[in-house]
């Protein structure tokens, strides 16, 4: 069996979540990968070095079309003939593209898998992770997105795959890419960070939210947020952790002024160690936290920094 993995990359570097998707794919068969974009050639080079990858398909495109679901879905559907499974990490890009490709192939996609039972049977969370469903697909081909936090990524170096060019089709038209606005950050990526410090409504405003930065600096952490913090404009949407935001599972997750509603927990409850700081002893976050402090976060935050400086 051969499996195709559609990779996410940033300026040629393959994202860690995609290496988790490759780890999942290699349980199903021989792995080929697809990279698209203006810097597909650089990405193809990185991808060829990933152990376990047999062949890299690169679709270089400088027209902006590789940013659109329509042509990329058409490409995946064209390539599908050679594969039993098509996978990608559950990123916003994959969620945009894969279901469309599935429709073109008359396949019901299987999103967000957390385990593989066999070539047809997969486990995926439903109801914001309140339940885990084991589902068996009757489709001849499977189209799957992979929850990266459930599969250890393969290494980035050591492989030696061949690289082949493929052409991005024009797609059905009618869709034009205008612009992408990426927020710049020096911090580790939220989804692959070892430590995440998240702030919620308890941070009160965007100015205060910045108070999390010195703590994050000390811990080498990424910064996350609850939806309430995003909705109120303390930080922008890409910080959101939860059912409809990012799913994270760091070694250490610190929740500051977050109540712990189920939709937030859906995005972080698989973290190894959870710390909650909240002034309300009844806050539901304490039901999942390994360590909690009941108190005012604005008092505790500077104390934490001081303790870290001391002990470190």
């Amino acid at each position: 069996m051969a499996v195709l993995v559609y990779l996410d990359h940033e300026g040629g570097a393959i994202r860690q979540a995609s290496r988790s998707a490759i780890a999942a794919a290699s349980r199903l068969g021989d792995v080929d990968v697809l990279v698209t974009g203006p810097d597909a050639a650089a990405a193809a080079k990185s991808a060829a070095a990933i152990p376990g990858v047999k062949k890299v398909l690169q679709a270089t495109d400088t027209t902006g079309n590789s940013e659109l679901a329509e042509p990329v879905a058409a490409l995946l559907a064209d390539l599908a003939a050679g594969y039993t499974h098509i996978l990608a990490a559950s990123s916003a890009t994959a969620k945009n593209v894969l279901p469309r490709a599935a429709a073109l192939l008359d396949v019901q996609p299987i999103p967000d898998i957390v385990a593989i039972n066999d070539a047809d049977t997969f486990v995926r969370p439903i109801y914001a992770g309140s339940a885990l469903a084991t589902v068996k697909s009757a489709d001849a081909k499977k189209i799957i997105t992979v929850r990266a936090s459930s599969f250890d990524p393969v290494a980035g170096e050591g492989g030696n795959a061949t690289i082949e060019d493929v052409a991005l089709p024009a797609g059905p038209g009618g869709s034009t890419f205008i612009a992408t606005e990426l927020s710049k950050s020096e911090r580790p990526e939220l989804e692959s960070a070892r430590v995440v410090v998240s702030g919620g409504n308890g941070m009160l405003n965007g100015e205060n939210f910045k108070l999390l930065e010195p703590l994050a600096d000390r811990l080498g952490a990424a910064i996350g947020a609850s939806r309430a913090a995003v909705d109120k404009g303390f930080v922008s949407n890409e910080y959101q952790v939860g059912q409809t935001g990012k799913i994270v599972a760091p070694e250490l997750y610190i929740a500051m002024g977050i109540s712990g509603q189920i939709q937030h927990l859906a995005g972080m409850k698989d973290s190894k160690v959870i710390v909650a700081i909240n002034k309300d002893p009844e806050a539901p976050i304490f039901q999942v936290a390994d360590y909690g402090i009941v108190g005012d976060l604005f008092t505790i935050l500077p104390q934490l920094e001081a303790e870290l400086d001391k002990a470190g």
């Binding site: 396949v107 019901q108 299987i110 049977t121 969370p125 439903i126 992770g129 309140s130 339940a131 885990l132 469903a133 084991t134 589902v135 068996k136 697909s137 009757a138 489709d139 250490l252 409850k269 160690v273 959870i274 710390v275 002893p281 304490f286 039901q287 999942v288 936290a289 390994d290 360590y291 909690g292 402090i293 009941v294 505790i300 104390q303 934490l304 001081a306 303790e307 870290l308 002990a311």
Partner: peptide, 30 residues
């Protein structure tokens, strides 16, 4: 449907941990 549900289960339950009194204790435990 193309997907048949084999089973639906509760996810592994996370147990509530302990409440600490100070930032010093938290850092030491971590």
């Amino acid at each position: 449907p193309r997907l048949s549900v084999v089973s639906v289960a509760e996810p592994p339950e996370r147990k509530a941990g302990i409440k600490l009194d100070s930032a010093a204790e938290l850092v030491s435990r971590l």
